[in-house]
Design a protein around this nucleic acid. Sequence first.
RNA 1: GCCGGAGUGGCGGAAUGGCAGACGCGCGGCACUCAAAAUGCCGUGUCCUUCGGGACGUGUGGGUUCGACUCCCACCUCCGGCACCA
Length: 856
Amino acid sequence: MATPETESPSPQPEGDRYDPQAIERKWQLVWDAENTWVVANPGVPEFDASAPKSYVLEMLPYPSGEPHVGHLKTYSVGDAIAHFRRRRGFSVLHPMGYDAFGLPAENNAISTGEHPREATEKSIVAFREQFRRWGISIDWSREFGTHEPSYYRWTQWIFLKLYERGLAHRHEAPVQWCPQDATVLAHEQVIDGHCERCGTLVEQRKLEQWFFRITEYAQQLLDDFELLESWPENVVTMQRNWIGRSEGAEVTFRCDELELDFPVFTTRPDTLFGATFFVVAPEHPDVERLAAGTEKERAVRDYVNESARASAEERAEEERQKTGVPLGREVINPVNGERIPIFVADYVLMEYGTGAIMAVPAHDERDYDFAKAYDLPIRRVIEGADPEQARDDEGLPYSGDGQMVNSGRFDGKDNREAYDEIVDWLGSEDRGKPAVNYRLRDWLVSRQRYWGAPIPIVYCDQCGTVPVPEDQLPVLLPEIEEYAPRGKSPLAAAEDWVRTGCPSCGGEARRETDTMDTFVDSSWYFLRYLDPKNDEQCWAKEIADYWMPVDQYIGGVEHAILHLMYARFFVKALHDMGLLEAREPFANLFTQGMITREGAKMSKSRGNTVSPAEYVDRFGADTLRTYICFMGPPIKGGDWSDEGAEGIFRFLSRLWRLGREVAERTEAGGDARAPEAQPRATRETSAAGDARVLLAKAHWAIDKATRDIEPRFQFNTAIAAVMELVNETYRLKDRLYDDATGAAAVRFATATAASLLFPFAPHLAAEVYEWLAGERLWEQPWPEADPALLERDTYMLVIQVNGKLRDRIEVESDASEEQLLELARQSENVRRHLDGKAVVKEIVVPGRLVNLVAKG
RNA sequence: GCCGGAGUGGCGGAAUGGCAGACGCGCGGCACUCAAAAUGCCGUGUCCUUCGGGACGUGUGGGUUCGACUCCCACCUCCGGCACCA
């Protein structure tokens, strides 16, 4: 049967079975050729001012090898949201880039000699190729890698801005050193005393390093959680704990002999009268001076050396006995004038507070242990005992509340009341004040590695530390021969590059040879997408202010602290520089769970990885994407199963076959528009019986899928609703083809199924929809459920006796409570259960159930 | 130790005080077929049953409620984060 092309508005299906490869290639070519997902910035003619903006972003990938299933999940989830929002009328920005600097490429270079740039760019090609085959709707016109000079030029520029404002500074500090990677690590990159990346035990070293003053923003980082629309509670909690705010007081203890003041931070100024000794950390700068000239000098030096050798891990061991040595000096307790001995002990940490503490053994477990170990006095100053905590007959230590004792004029007071009075009193004597302390430390950004953005600083004997002038950026990464680090950055070997003129005096100077932590690169990339080609500025402010903040950010929960907090810090600092209105980068955050296989994390060594490329070859991208969204709520992890993926392939095939059959058996009629755009009269009101049932199911699916996709992110149940719609259509179609209303209902139901599936299986959905409606699905608005069709004429009334299900009967939707009760009482099964009993209470919930409470 | 989150069929999961187990996987049956695959349809928590139905059932124990997977209290197990943070 030859039909002239002009008479066939919809292309007819070809072949006799679902061929994802052909369909996916077809649509990808269309989207590519037409730049379908490119979106214009304000200020250019194509800009659409009428649509509200939505910036949908997944965390940028680190390009190493090929993408894995975790990437597939992130981008499947993000793309579903991007598609959904586009069809809901938003102008959606959905860009892509690569976090291209970093250690794996460099370690690869050390073992193979392949330039990190080559390995990285090869991998970028592989990633790009996969993303295209997955059909992710990316605006490719904004793509970049953070290793490109046109990008890291601005990373360096931001470094200089931070330096200008005193937010980047260099100083010597004890730092965490990974001997395997031969570089320092940020505090956040040390997990249980081991390198986050390679697992090697880290060492402490004292080095001159660059830091970003994230601690300046500690309070804002806490306060601005208020500005976020929706972040997972656990991520907020993790950051809160990481920042670790505690309120207390700073109290000064004085060492008379040396005329030195030692401020300490305490959260318990109410226990000051119980301080029986004083402890400083081994790294405390005054330790040497304190011990000098005393008979303990030698012992102290030995102890300090020993604890410097001890690893962070050893020091943190839980069961470890407390150790320390006396310094042979005393300080004066400001509340009672008592002279108490000073110790040096490694249970006190230099990094927190002032590196010195007042020890109150009666009310602090650690001080208690130390006092017991060295036989020091323990003086109770607060009444009470906690049996869980107490370790002796006195009920000590005790860290709870109670009446004060042994505390001079505060005796008999409630410790909570005394708290403020003591701080006030110390304040008036100038020996103390209220204080807040944070656990958060400054962000160490220097890395003694090659493959990163060079720190744009020059050292000159005359002028000291000199920032590279902006017009000399970027400081290009030089080519070198030997990547292996030797305790110094490999860049130090590029002598021609290191030697440079001082930008200030023109004399001889040397470049900083450390590069920046790659987390610096990824702390602002979401801003560069907005104006990626700009050579004059990092971004135009009006463009950034239009798109920012990111409306929906998507990524793995493993970045809950590091990346997400650094990016928040950057945006706050950039805001304060006047470069940005936004105070927070990501208004909404979605963290997806990890996909496992056979219950275990996927890893090459375990041999249980799933290669997305292989599965795309086998089932097509639509199947994979839909399966991943169907495995369970994306926020949770899920266990991969080949059978499950096959099930989705079967479902998509089923929809494909249905679409093909419906396109053949029903007429599009004179109206080639999308079914949901057709006049309501032709598609609903006249429908009755099975046609009406099917239409109601379609509208139910629209309603359910829409609410499940956003704001619930419950894609698995949205897909299940489409499956139900397809099942219902299969059940009813053969009874409906024969009359026009019925056929229209089948056509509508099938097109609606495709329409709702589009965010997950865009290629197949576009294909089926084209057959049925002759339209491009992504140009159609998201369907809206008709409330009239969501309402049912009748429903199943549940009848319970004493809360137990006894019958179900179909009733009119508008039946009154009395009628419902009457119907309930008539039920034979209900009567049997009521036999010989008196109904004492009747619960009627119209639309749901009747519950008869009977006694006797 | 502290702070989060979770525990539901053979499996992944659904159900935001109202029919527990939607949807999918797996399994069983029927149709189509010479046959198989594919496809379509039906069934599938456990136990009892006179086949009408009944009892039990969401980690454990208690509580609130006409009614609890859902809310409250205590406990057990697992997962994640932090951990000598004064």
